[in-house]
């Protein structure tokens, strides 16, 4: 039972980080109609920014957090302007290949700058742990889950209540009509990328606080699983991203925790298997809506 609960909490943790990343995918997919393959690598860059500012620049911790989020958001903005914006009218396959290129570019720049060895963080959030009925739960777990909840609620309010948020909804519904209503499409898409990448920055902080390591490939696999979460919950839906992320996180923790030794080597395979089953059975996800295709 104790093992079960701590595995569950581990899964909730992992799932909360997935949920934050999934949100970024989901927003960008909903508005720019593209799978931003490089989103996972933004997290990696954010984590390296955090690593450098903590271990080498030795800045105060709150400043490093801010720096991490700002760098991630700027990266998202710049990537969109340079690589994706010229391709607004291109075929989806061209955009997708470009996004893969950007993802590869970020990974390999990190590889050249920091080397392929895993960098270890010095512990920067010393929170201790809480003892409940014989199980010790690290405080960081509560911080991660709490942050995720606050961000979800905040984002939901932002999109439903503010002018910019409503503009985003309009753009995702129909670009041409939104433009006719006087919405600046380019600006809206830029804002979406900035918010999505800032969330990736926050995910980078939470990820680093929990796992204490970063390497150039941190983001790619993580990102793909988070995309699986976004699809699972229904692309474009905020509660969907949250539920999808948590389900995938818990499922992953359970499979790595309970499968017999040999099979855990294939645990990544299981996460992908869920993605495939989900996409085949219900491509629109739990909370997604179906679009009708016309000529």
């Amino acid at each position: 039972m104790q093992v079960f609960i701590s595995t569950l909490i581990d899964g909730l943790n992992q799932g909360s980080v997935y949920a934050l990343i999934a949100l970024g995918y989901s927003m960008v997919y909903g508005i720019a109609k593209m799978l931003n393959f490089a989103h996972g690598d933004v997290i990696m860059v954010g984590a390296y920014a955090l690593f450098v500012s903590i271990t080498q620049l030795e800045l105060p911790i709150p400043v490093t957090f801010l720096l991490c989020v700002i760098i991630s958001a700027t990266l998202g903005f710049v990537v969109e302007k340079l690589a994706y914006k010229p391709l607004r009218k291109a075929t989806p396959i061209a955009v997708l290949i470009t996004a893969i290129g950007v993802s590869y570019l970020l990974q390999n720049i990190a590889l050249l700058v920091f080397g392929s060895r895993r960098k270890m963080f010095t512990p920067f959030l010393k929170l201790g742990s809480l003892k409940v009925g014989g199980i010790s739960i690290p405080m960081i777990s509560f911080v991660i889950i709490g942050t995720m909840l606050v961000i979800m609620i905040g984002l939901q309010l932002f999109i439903k209540k503010t002018k910019t948020g409503i503009a985003m909804l309009a753009v995702s519904e129909d670009k041409a009509a939104a433009q006719l209503m006087g919405i600046n499409i380019n600006r809206t898409i830029s804002i979406t990328f900035i918010i999505g990448s800032a969330l990736a920055g926050i995910a980078a902080i939470l990820y680093s606080a929990k796992y204490m390591t970063v390497d150039p490939y941190t983001g790619s696999l993580f990102g793909i699983k988070a995309f699986a979460a976004a699809v699972f919950g229904g692309i474009g839906s905020i509660p969907g991203a949250m539920i999808g992320g948590i389900l995938i996180g818990v499922f992953e923790a359970m499979t790595t925790g309970y499968l017999p030794g040999n099979l855990t080597q294939a645990s990544d395979g299981f996460a992908f298997a869920i993605l495939i089953i989900m996409l085949i059975l219900k491509p629109t996800g739990i909370f997604g809506t179906k679009r009708i295709e016309k000529v």
């Binding site: 690589a83 010229p86 391709l87 291109a90 061209a94 955009v95 290949i97 470009t98 893969i100 290129g101 950007v102 590869y104 570019l105 990974q107 390999n108």
Partner: peptide, 10 residues
């Protein structure tokens, strides 16, 4: 490879 992919597409 990464740069070539992006450049060719753009």
């Amino acid at each position: 490879y990464a740069i070539v992919l992006i450049a060719v597409m753009l």
